[in-house]
């Protein structure tokens, strides 16, 4: 995709968000629902969005920031295309979920909370996804992988990379 295309796409998203924010009633109680809406659309809260929300609700920017940074849900950096979430619930902990997390960190060479330089993967720990009977559990995107083992990590990541390469090859072939 050309650079200009990405830019205009970004502008379209921002415009869309501004109009959606404007549709909310100017009530302080709408602050969290608005932030949730933005995050759903953009996968994170960019600084411009925080300003937009503050202007709409007529409250100081820092107040929006103070509220957003309080809650686990909100992130301030874009996640990878395949966000990895490792469950750190009690049942997963007892079944060594931390080993799974470490293995993802090792294989992707990033720490929890970070995104790979190619923006393909990011790693997060989540409190409990409620699949305790399948512990330990990890999610890649929206897919739940139960009964995880350290040795399964590499295979899962490899599969995503292979699929991506395959898709790219096909795209190149299609363009020819």
């Amino acid at each position: 995709m050309a650079h200009e295309e990405i830019l205009s796409e970004q502008e379209a998203i921002e415009k869309d968000i501004r109009s959606r924010v404007a549709a909310f009633e100017k009530a302080r109680g709408n602050l969290i629902p608005i932030l949730q809406m933005i995050q759903e659309k953009q996968a994170y809260l960019p600084p411009e969005a925080i300003n937009t929300v503050a202007a709409h609700l007529e409250i100081p920017v820092c107040e929006v920031y103070g509220v957003a940074t309080f809650y686990n849900q909100f992130r301030f950096h874009p996640p990878g295309r395949h966000p990895v979430k490792v469950c750190m619930g009690t049942a997963c902990h007892v079944k060594a979920g931390d080993v799974i997390l470490e293995n993802f960190e090792r294989k992707l060479e990033i720490r929890e909370g970070q995104t790979t330089p190619d923006r393909e993967f990011s790693i997060e720990r989540v409190a409990c996804v409620g699949c305790c009977a399948l512990a330990p559990v990890a999610l890649i995107g929206d897919t739940v992988h139960g009964h995880m083992a350290p040795s399964k990590v590499e295979g899962l990541l490899l599969r995503i990379r292979i699929e991506k390469e395959k898709a790219e090859r096909e795209k190149v072939r299609g363009e020819r």
């Binding site: 600084p47 503050a54 100081p60 920017v61 820092c62 920031y65 103070g66 940074t69 309080f70």
Partner: peptide, 18 residues
């Protein structure tokens, strides 16, 4: 208020953000 509490728990700070 032009300053706020930001972040949470042990990481809580006062912030002038923005």
């Amino acid at each position: 208020a032009l300053l706020t509490f930001a972040k949470r728990g042990i990481d809580t700070v006062i912030s002038f953000y923005g």
